[in-house]
Amino acid sequence: MKTTTGTPTAEQTDALRVTLVIGSNRHGRFGPVVADWLLDRLRDRDDLVAEVVDVAEAALPTSLEPTPEATAALSGITPKLDRADAFVVLTPEYNHSFPAGLKNLIDWHYAEWRAKPVALVSYGGLAGGLRAVEHLRQVFAELHAVTVRDTVSFHNAGASFDDDGRLRDPSGPDAAAKTMLDQLAWWGHALREARTTHPYTG
């Protein structure tokens, strides 16, 4: 997967910090292919600066016990979530829902999500991961986050990309991504200003 930087340029001082969460840790996962496409869409915009949290690189126990190993893993994850103005969460659909590893990463955090917008991108078979998206909306509502209305979903995702990881027909997904990211940017700016002038207490 391509690397990214979370450091704004001089022209991006007002840019929103967007953390892309890659939600699968399964062997042979397809997520990095979709993530690279997403990162290109994020980098196309001057109003967004992206960095990545990858569930596959997060060695977090499911017990939520603050072990030394968990503390070390959190030291690389939590700051990226905390400083984010907005999130894009990329999820596959496993058994009509989203992966356990993604839920575990979400559950390890609370304040980091509060009063921030979340865009949802999914991939899968016939359903394109949309059932996972609807479950994630409920989870993020409980965490006082705001999910944006429009999503991007890839039905039969493996057939949508060629062997080099490029979309065979980018027109639809690119248009959907623009709409979704426009909404994310609006909510991101609005909520960042609101948190600054009137801190959220819930």
Results as ranks from 00 to 15, higher is better:
4 T>N: 14
7 T>G: 01
17 R>S: 12
18 V>E: 03
20 L>G: 03
29 R>F: 04
30 F>Y: 06
32 P>L: 03
33 V>W: 06
35 A>P: 08
38 L>D: 03
40 D>Q: 13
42 L>D: 14
43 R>A: 12
46 D>E: 11
53 V>F: 08
57 E>W: 13
58 A>W: 08
59 A>G: 12
60 L>P: 02
67 T>A: 07
68 P>H: 09
70 A>Q: 01
75 S>K: 14
78 T>I: 09
79 P>W: 02
84 A>P: 01
85 D>P: 04
87 F>Y: 15
89 V>M: 06
94 Y>Q: 05
95 N>V: 12
97 S>F: 08
100 A>S: 14
105 L>Q: 11
106 I>Y: 05
106 I>A: 08
107 D>V: 03
111 A>W: 00
112 E>Y: 01
115 A>V: 12
115 A>K: 07
130 L>S: 03
131 R>F: 02
131 R>E: 04
134 E>R: 08
134 E>K: 08
135 H>W: 09
135 H>K: 10
141 A>F: 11
144 H>V: 08
149 R>Y: 08
149 R>Q: 11
153 S>A: 15
157 A>I: 02
160 S>E: 05
162 D>W: 02
166 R>Q: 15
169 D>S: 09
170 P>V: 07
177 A>S: 03
179 T>C: 00
180 M>P: 15
187 W>Y: 15
193 E>V: 10
197 T>R: 10
199 P>L: 01
201 T>E: 14
